[in-house]
Design a protein around this nucleic acid. Structure first.
Length: 602
RNA sequence: GGUGAUAUAGCUCAGCCGGCUAGAGCGCGGGACUCAUAAUCUCGAGGUCAGUGGUUCGAGUCCACUUAUCACCA
């Protein structure tokens, strides 16, 4: 019956640390990744789930500039908040680090050196706009000018807000610096390294073909299309915040492009995790192991970086840090990219504050309530919508009414009428055995959907099973039979308790907090999952905070309940808080209003 | 402009290689029950499957075009 443990790598998109996390982040990548990772841990598989804050890139610089902070102070502020937020909502990273570690810099530079040595990098001259005032090349986003397509006066260097077209800053009419309008921008020649993606075209086409069966069609089609006319892409830029280029004379004004080094974080964070664990070679079990299955959880805007570009980087450095006779480096097995989650019918917008921020809602709602609604609304096949009315509805009418109430009524009944214990019965009826078998079938059906990363369907399947227990109870009516035939009530309550015991396991990847509560109320000791810990690591005097997962005390298993008769229960308390409809309007009214970032934790 | 995706009940979505009298949950209306956070169970009303044209004995399901939304590329 038991299959040998699988080796699963869960690579999760790295959030830019220039603002708080919102439900879009959660729906797009973090919650799917966590559900998937928790399921595989319950299955007894070896899971390594890593991510971290993206501390580089122009979004960080732009925001830091706006606030008069250094990029480092800015990203450290949000990194810290990311740790708190993700701990509170239960995103169980084995390591959530950031890209400004000594380790990540070293590994990214080794990627660069290896690619250069193997002839995958090409040096090219480019003409870009140079600021005479600041004595540097300005990133696209620091440039404004007149749009050469629609004539809009204040087009940004990367995109025109009026016509939506992407901009080539060199073509802008009367380009000027966003910061200093009196600054003079002059075209000047500069040199950059380009990653020759076209050299990997055939290998990646074969790679895509080999995964045709199980990838989401949208992801596969998109990637093939992107690959068709893939061309060399600059991996360095004129900027002073980022990872230095490890070459003579490239130290001062040039850094790696963030798209190049951020994905390397999946690799470097695995290496860091291994080192932090005191098993510095352990990362090879994922990265040089032909049996490892690697999943990248990302949003759709990130698809080409994780289905083509990251593969090119990995193929280009294959063998890096490998031991003698190692198998080829691991490429992602699947990239289950999600679409976007809109808010009340409109696209997320940071500038308009059209967003549902996680630190804010975690102060008002239970983490499992948020997880439930977001998971049942995952944008797995197309964009989905977060609406407060639907959130309240789903929590009250589904999570609370169908599941929370089931747990409460059954454990409550047993607690009151059977002496605070799991009832003892003589023999179960056919109906009882049929229900147990039906619920146990969920380990295959829900598990199968989870393995295929159809998480929304998996959740709905598990909830459907919970409903069947309500139907069963209605038919067996222990509240009636207990008056005439206590033994029959004992059978049906035992059966329902055992169904609940199974269901809490089936729901545990989605609802880890309340599943743990159910486990405790059923009288079990111990934890389904491990501990999430915020800790600090020291790299030769330079420290960084991280969120980690310690699974050593976790005893949860994806297997059928053997609930013992007579086991002492704990007095049940309701799992979920009922949400008051009046609050819907209050929540809606917050959208689009100025927001204050509250400083304290949760 | 190019490429890809999405458009199915009031809401959120399922409908794989064409055979459905079009499904689920929520919401709504009637009934039952009372163990339970007025929760649960049951019955029911609700859709010309974005539009137009085509292939086929037969099309939400395949093809073409159109419209709308989204992403990426230029």
């Amino acid at each position: 019956m038991t299959t040998p443990p699988k080796t699963i790598h869960v690579s999760v998109a790295w959030p830019y640390a220039n603002g708080d996390l919102h439900v879009g982040h959660l729906a797009g990548a973090y919650l799917p990744a966590d559900i998937f990772a928790r399921y595989h841990r319950l299955r007894g598989n070896r899971v390594l789930m890593v991510s971290g804050s993206d501390s580089h890139g122009t979004p960080i610089m732009v925001e830091a500039n706006k606030r008069g902070m250094t990029p480092r102070d800015l990203f450290e502020r949000y990194h810290r908040r990311f740790l708190e937020t993700q701990k509170a909502i239960g995103i169980s990273y084995d390591l959530f680090t950031h890209t400004d570690t000594v380790n990540h810099h070293r590994i990214s530079q080794d990627f660069f050196r290896t690619l250069l040595a193997r002839g995958y990098l090409r040096l090219e001259k480019q003409t870009l706009l140079y600021s005479e005032l600041e004595q540097r090349f300005l990133p696209d986003r620091f440039i404004e000018g007149e749009c050469y397509i629609c004539g809009y006066k204040d087009a940004r260097g990367d995109q025109c807000d009026n016509c939506g077209n992407l901009m080539d800053p060199m073509k802008l009419i009367n380009p000027r610096s966003k910061e200093n309008p009196q600054d003079r921008l002059v075209p000047r020649e500069t040199e950059h390294y380009f990653l020759e993606l076209d050299k990997f075209q055939e290998a990646i086409a074969r790679y895509l073909d080999s995964h045709e069966g199980h990838w989401r069609p949208a992801v596969l089609n998109f990637s093939r299309n992107f690959l068709k006319d893939v061309r060399p892409r600059p991996i360095t830029r004129d900027i002073d915040w980022g990872i230095p280029i490890p070459l003579e004379g490239w130290g001062e004004q040039k850094r790696m492009y963030v798209w190049f080094e951020a994905v390397i974080g999946y690799f470097s964070a695995s290496v860091e995790w291994a080192k932090n664990q005191g098993t510095p070679d352990a990362w090879r079990d994922w990265w040089y192991n032909p049996d490892c299955q690697m999943y990248c959880f990302i949003g759709k805007d990130n698809i080409p970086f994780h289905t083509v570009i990251w593969q090119a980087e990995l193929l280009g450095v294959d063998g890096l840090y490998a031991l003698e006779g190692a198998p080829p480096i691991t490429l992602p097995y699947d990239v289950p990219a999600n679409e976007f989650m809109n808010i009340e019918g409109q696209q997320f917008s940071k500038s308009r504050n059209w967003a549902v921020w996680l630190p804010d809602i975690l102060r008002r709602y239970q983490p499992d309530a948020i997880r439930y609604y977001v998971a049942r609304s995952f944008p797995e096949t197309s964009d989905s919508d977060f609406s407060w009315e639907n959130f309240f509805n789903s929590v009250n009418a589904e999570l609370l009414a169908a599941w929370g109430n089931l747990v409460n009524r059954v454990i409550g009944f047993a607690y009151k009428r059977f002496d605070g214990r799991v009832p003892t019965y003589d023999a179960l009826t056919d109906a009882d055995q049929a229900l147990i078998a039906r619920i146990e079938s969920g380990f295959d059906s829900v598990g199968g959907l989870l393995e295929r990363v159809r998480l929304r369907d998996a959740l709905l399947e598990a909830m459907g099973l919970a409903r069947e227990v309500n139907v069963y109870l209605d038919q067996r009516a222990p509240w009636k039979t207990i008056k005439t035939d206590e033994q029959d009530a004992a059978r049906s309550i035992y059966t329902a308790l055992r169904a609940i015991d199974n269901l809490k396991t089936l729901l545990a990847p989605f609802l880890p907090f309340s599943s743990q509560q159910v486990r405790a109320m059923l009288g079990y000791a111990g934890q389904l999952f491990g501990e999430q810990i915020i800790t600090c690591y020291d790299e030769d005097g330079r420290t960084h905070d991280a969120l980690i997962y310690d699974g050593s005390a976790a005893i949860g298993r994806w297997e059928a309940s053997q609930l013992p008769q007579g086991q002492a229960l704990r007095e049940p308390t309701p799992l979920y808080v009922k949400l008051e409809d009046e609050m819907i309007a209050t929540e809606r009214a917050r959208l689009g209003q100025p927001r204050e970032e509250v400083e304290d934790g949760f």
